[in-house]
Design a protein around this nucleic acid. Sequence first.
DNA 1: GTTATTAATGCAAACGTTTGTGCAATTTTA
DNA 2: TAAAATTGCACAAACGTTTGCATTAATAAC
Lengths: 337, 337
Amino acid sequence: MKKESLVSISKRTGYSISTISRVLNGQAEKYRISKKAVELISAEAKRCNYTPSLLAKGLRTRKTNTLGLIILNIDNPYFSNISNIVIHQAKEHGYTVILADSLENEHDERDVVRSLLSRQVDGIIAVPCGQDPSFLEEINKNSIPIVLIDRYYQNSGLPFVSTNNYQGGRMATEYFLARGHYKIACICGTPYSMPSKERVRGYSDVMKEAGLESEIFISGEDFSIMNGYLETKLLLNSKKKPTAIFTLSNTILLGAMKAINESGLKIKDDISVISFDNNTYLDYLNPPITRISQPTDEIGTLAVKIMLQSLEGNRDMGTRILLPPELIERDSVSRIF
Amino acid sequence: MKKESLVSISKRTGYSISTISRVLNGQAEKYRISKKAVELISAEAKRCNYTPSLLAKGLRTRKTNTLGLIILNIDNPYFSNISNIVIHQAKEHGYTVILADSLENEHDERDVVRSLLSRQVDGIIAVPCGQDPSFLEEINKNSIPIVLIDRYYQNSGLPFVSTNNYQGGRMATEYFLARGHYKIACICGTPYSMPSKERVRGYSDVMKEAGLESEIFISGEDFSIMNGYLETKLLLNSKKKPTAIFTLSNTILLGAMKAINESGLKIKDDISVISFDNNTYLDYLNPPITRISQPTDEIGTLAVKIMLQSLEGNRDMGTRILLPPELIERDSVSRIF
DNA sequence: GTTATTAATGCAAACGTTTGTGCAATTTTA
DNA sequence: TAAAATTGCACAAACGTTTGCATTAATAAC
């Protein structure tokens, strides 16, 4: 089966390549192609199952209808979740997405960006991993639009949509306080990342406002399971053993649970826990975990929307959006009186 | 920043486009390009940060170094897990992958395949969703190589790599029997899919061999959480209430757990459970779930390997691989005496 | 019966590569 | 010193599209 092309259809129908192209792009009227021609060509295209070469099309029009999506790690349910949304939203609007992960490594991130540029993607939606936005900023300014999700930069013009992590940090902490906890530890993720910073800030502010400045305890280095595990080990064996732990991601939570289990302690009865991120299986844990849920659906959908606006010419709008999180109350926090 | 191209470099260095191309492709020796030229050109290419247009390259060479990966649903951890492997393995060998899901819908699957063909992917790795392999077979025969993973077809030449699901079905059932269970229900997924069929066959065979033909109980219609929930509801309220349930996927398990929780029953003490698929969080469920784990790493890696072999010319090898599953023993099965 | 108008289509360049072939200039051979 | 061989590079076609402009034939205008 030889690949069909405008040329092969042209030969078989007798019409010129340009006419075929115009008909197949719905430009028949504009160019006053006769009804007869339109019918003949359409029929033949359908018959031979013609699919245009998007390579050639992209080369000629400088538009590929493709978006790049860069996340930190596909295997993290939070990111696979958001990828899911982005991919479907993009498809909805006629775009295909190329998914890549940076493994939270700046060098890989650059490689990935370059690879996407080589492929002439029309735009990039990314969870950035570094501390320096300049590389992405330059791309955004000189090449193609970039929209950030989850992580973002404060002093950068790069548009983003993320969760109001500060508010999320506050909500969790206030929830603990309302139930009598005041020895609350916070296990954070990658410290310079905006989500971690903001969640921590929310936690700290609430503690301070409650006059518990001396009880503030923050540790952690990244969003890995291992980090959650190690930090919890330390916490449980320290003198200032907390009565509550605020884990800043679902991965940290899993690690923390492992450490808690190993200590023979029971979540809620012995130590209370609130986590960040939502996930079905959290309802099936023992006990079900109270958590701060991010609006991933809205984040993904908005990111695509913003991207499409950029692509339609409204460049550099510098949109910055923070969506409110939601507290999902389950059964991992005790009442202390 | 004007996009750089062979032309722009050509103009600036004074060398012809072909010379630039050959130098940048490492063909300098083969074409006896002078040292001086090689150095000049390489330097300039680096200086202006040249990245070749993969569109043009693909158009010219009919090779895009891109693979299509079609799965059923990105949001399912089993699939995101396997996607992860495939994406990284492909990258390892210089390939980019375009990820798409069919939402387990034959119509969408066709659309997705066509879209990938339009993009001139070099090959497709897919979890197929229909019962009729003919569409994919035709592609495999006439256009580009296809490698199936997870699901496959018995009477088809399409190569595949999957788990030995039959063996997995046997292992779970034998495990139950060895602990005194004989009223074992099996909640299956999409009935015509090979994984479900084979797991069920393993279950049935062991039951028959144990003389428990009359106790065989199979139900279920797909791999959804809802299916697991509804079927378990029915089971728990039927007269022939089982003492053990074999859920054929992680999703079915979650649904089953919900139903069990709602009945006020406790897994293990009141009803034993073994599931298919592995996942970190299963260790944190209450209780941790004994399960049949699929070797997703190996499946993904082999799928890419087979694909690469195909692409290197060894077409139509019709490789068919079933890898052994592994029983991960946790604490969701009681002993009955 | 010319000339202007319109309808229907074709030509050819361009997008950025790769690659077979050609062709001077230089060096080697005898 | 003429012929042969080698060195170093350029030309141009091709991949499959899109699109501004040109062209032809038919119809309308006068």
